[in-house]
Nucleic acid binder design. Structure first.
Lengths: 209, 209
DNA sequence: CCCTGTGTAGACCGAATGGTCTAGTGCTGT
DNA sequence: ACAGCACTAGACCATTCGGTCTACACAGGG
């Protein structure tokens, strides 16, 4: 990991918050995991737990964006299309889930889920991160010659499936839902191809008539 | 609501747990919401919070099964197919989400998510409920003449999308993800039809050759 | 040499948490 | 009338929570 106290705190917080959620994660947990004492935390994060959670969410979102970018780059270099990139992205997440529990994913939604009443600060942060993810999708999709919508919708669907299956896998203590998420996202590529064929078919028919 | 103290506790707990999660929901919250005092709670649920959460999860799972059943019945009576039932199911959940925040859904995964270390009791409960949902899907799909797998997979996919979008909608404080979940699940019907056509196409070609 | 600023250490605090315990209420069958 | 019971009420407890505060370590500049 990183060696600065600040970084140690963010990394530890990101992991714990993702695993247990905001309310269940105690400051002491984070301090113990990070090997840091209370004074340091409140020096770097005057706002306490809230500040730290926001920093952790930002860090996690960064990792997620990197994964998306890497998956797209790989698909590109292997001659695949945008849907191949989505599959690659999903498989990466599954692999890391299978290996280390749930580490390195499901950043924003899990991290910023404070119990109880609407927390406008956290919601605003979350919206910011998801907007960035959206922009990244549009950007990467564009490199495959896709429109903004054709870039964003597949990623959104993949994200929903992944978040759902991640949630489930965590509750059940079983990676099966994550595995089926991979299958579902592989299916999406087929779906997309079939839809294209069907549209070709239609325009063909229309040309004939 | 129900009038027995036991029922009042279960209903209040189910709502609060779903909204805020296990760790963030205090016993006092539940008592206040239910209009019940501490002694009563520990009379009906000697195991305290844990017992109550398990009962709440069971209750929520029951509601979910009812919703699935109702959606299938409606699709049947209107001459629709199994995918129409999934769409109906999803729309119902979206409608109730739109109306009362997040009430009456996302039972098991949210309710039984205790922070921290693997909680084998909760996981076992969750597995039990999801197994029941699976059986219900197979049962209902059978009435539409579908195989077990063809019954279960669409529901699983719908559930994953719904859980993901529910999670997101809650964090963002915006029903948009739920709305897109409805669209995605409507898409599934089209996907299924296209796939059937393609398979017919293939078997046709094979017959010709 | 001290002074100042950045960062660390951990004792300490009030509030809130989940859980226990005793007293009491009101309905039951006898 | 009374004993037995299921149930309710809420004071009480130990623990833990997030957060504050003072003391200290140790740089670099004068």
């Amino acid at each position: 990991m990183e060696h600065s106290t600040y970084q140690k705190l963010v990394v530890a917080a990101a992991n714990l918050l993702r695993q247990k959620g905001y309310a269940a994660t105690g400051i002491s947990d984070i301090l113990k995991t990070a090997g840091v004492t209370r004074g340091s935390l409140y020096h770097h994060f005057p706002g306490g737990k809230r500040d730290l959670a926001i920093a952790a969410a930002r860090y996690s979102a960064e990792l997620l964006l990197d994964m998306i970018e890497a998956a797209c780059r790989k698909a590109h270099s292997e001659g695949g299309d945008y849907h191949d990139a989505m599959i690659e992205f999903c498989k990466k997440i599954y692999a890391s889930f299978e290996k280390n529990g749930n580490w390195r994913f499901m950043t924003v939604s899990a991290t910023l889920q404070e119990g109880g009443e609407r927390n406008e600060i956290f919601s605003k942060e979350a919206r910011k991160h998801y907007a960035r993810i959206r922009m990244k999708a549009i950007d990467e999709g564009g490199k495959f010659g896709l429109s903004a919508e054709a870039s964003y919708l597949p990623l959104r669907k993949a994200m929903l499936i992944l978040e759902g299956s991640w949630l489930l896998s965590r509750v059940l203590g079983d990676t099966m839902p994550m595995r089926s998420a991979v299958k579902f996202i592989e299916e999406e590529k087929l779906f997309h191809e079939l839809r294209q064929q069907a549209q070709l078919q239609i325009s063909h028919d229309e040309t004939l008539s």
